[in-house]
Design a protein around this nucleic acid. Sequence first.
DNA 1: CTGAAAGCGCTTACAG
DNA 2: CTGAAAGCGCTTACAG
Lengths: 342, 342
Amino acid sequence: MTIKGKPTSLDIAHLAGVSQPTVSRALRGSPMVSPETRRRILAIARELNYKVDKNASNLRCQQSGTLALLFFEEPAPDDASINPFFLSMLGSITRACAQRGFDLLISFQQLSSDWHADYEDSHKADGIILLGYGDYLEARTRLQQLVEQGTRFVRWGAALPGQPGVSIGCDNYQGGLDVGHHLLARGCRRIAFLGDASEHYPEFQERYRGLAAALTAAGLAADPDLQVDAVTTEQAGFEAATALLQGGAEFDAVFAASDLIAIGAMKALHEHGLRVPEDVAVAGFDDIPLASFVTPGLTTVQQDTRQAGTILVESLLALIAGEAAGSRTIPARLVLRGSTGA
Amino acid sequence: MTIKGKPTSLDIAHLAGVSQPTVSRALRGSPMVSPETRRRILAIARELNYKVDKNASNLRCQQSGTLALLFFEEPAPDDASINPFFLSMLGSITRACAQRGFDLLISFQQLSSDWHADYEDSHKADGIILLGYGDYLEARTRLQQLVEQGTRFVRWGAALPGQPGVSIGCDNYQGGLDVGHHLLARGCRRIAFLGDASEHYPEFQERYRGLAAALTAAGLAADPDLQVDAVTTEQAGFEAATALLQGGAEFDAVFAASDLIAIGAMKALHEHGLRVPEDVAVAGFDDIPLASFVTPGLTTVQQDTRQAGTILVESLLALIAGEAAGSRTIPARLVLRGSTGA
DNA sequence: CTGAAAGCGCTTACAG
DNA sequence: CTGAAAGCGCTTACAG
């Protein structure tokens, strides 16, 4: 007997001399199949390289065994500009999905496009993971829509009160506080902050608040002139630091809202003949792989991406299973390297 | 009329007072539907936020509208160690898929695991894109299996004669040649190569061959003692350069098989008190985003990831459509920066 | 322990 | 231009 095209469970059934449902049961490990029958079926299935058709089983079961990962980044002109931190998250999310037998569908979406719930509505995914340092105030409306439509989703971001849906994020405030304390302990007094510190970017805002709290505790105040907006790219960090230098601002340290910003800032400092850390100490946030490989190594705040990915996936699976899942904050950890003289 | 759960085409049909197939036709833009009927159906569909159930339509049409992207990297202990170059490819592949209305399923696989054709056999994907600097000789057997099973796939890699399946790669030989010529023109005579140069890694081997050809053309010879194996990580580059330095090797330039290796090597040189480019010139390969942001900027060979992603997707879609598709090589472009004194 | 039956939500000939 | 019918390949009550 020759089978044209991919084998189906009916083909296996004919070959094994049983009914098609029995094949299905055997393949799914149902206890209601005799060991002998199961063995025969599995052997044939293996020989034919049979794989259950996911479209059929998903249709029947009304679920997909797939999660969708959506990046909602600022419109980026070039493909290469994905933040390495998120790519590290991507790795751990992929792994967490695989461990639980879920596939991962990914998509890089503009904040502006009309993706909301598309993946779930079309049954392509059972739930959605949102990742990205986008403008929170713009994203908020869409998150609200998702909640109203009953879409299952979790997002990586500042886990603050009053947000729609489930957010998993690290303790940005504590991280900023730690960096502030550290820089102050190294003798820095005028600490510039590179990154948006408004409610548009709650994570950066929290980091800035942590820094400001450290300054206040030391009897100092955060100087608004030393805060320069920057999105999360080396280029933005380079430009922000350059602007600060050309504006004649005086500072002895830079706390960048992300490592990419910090690396761009270090380049600008270098080009202006300033030494790191002798003239200006620099600290970042994220601990991307390259943070330890720039010269000098970059002091930064590590976010545990492995843990983050696991929690994101587990929280989403809980939502899908109809269980409760709340927002959570994971710890941040200061990592000392040469850029602050450590 | 209230609908429980997600609306189906049958719900729309009832509401519009037509049959269910007519709804399907209208939604798919069939010309065999009167404008008036179509308008009514589309309005209702929009209002109910109806989306075609992909599982059902895929089952019916026997295709998935999805491509699978599989990374087959060396077993990596930590999630963060994905080569930024591939992540850049990931971005362009995602975009190319989206433009053509295909979804992208991704998976990070070990070379050792038993994924071959799993995605396609289970109808989860119509075809597979393979990405990774794995050991080619190990991968080869699996590629051969894929070809035999009739799986549609394309891979990024050295497009050399005699390989199973379709390979898309850049002109590694020309890139290595360009780097060699450039370093020689800067006065370098003893050029170390960091990276495996055996047939296990044909891309690296080609880069090395290019370098060797440049040396030969200048009346010099490649010194085997100056070639040190290294996989594509900063750590490996750091270790390879350190080994070279501690072994007392004399060299005035380093050509790293990838930017990550180069960045690790630069750190090692720095720690040994050697200046780049004054004491040792350094060049890499890939032009990852950070290459321009390390200090000094890294001279490297750019592979056009946008074009690569587009060609990979187009070639795969051609295979899926039953058309012929062959291996292709895309140009490499030397990018000069401070690390070679440019 | 196994089989006959129904049905998941679509798409596509086949009639009219 | 539209509808009735069949069927994609599964899974899961329901009988026995």
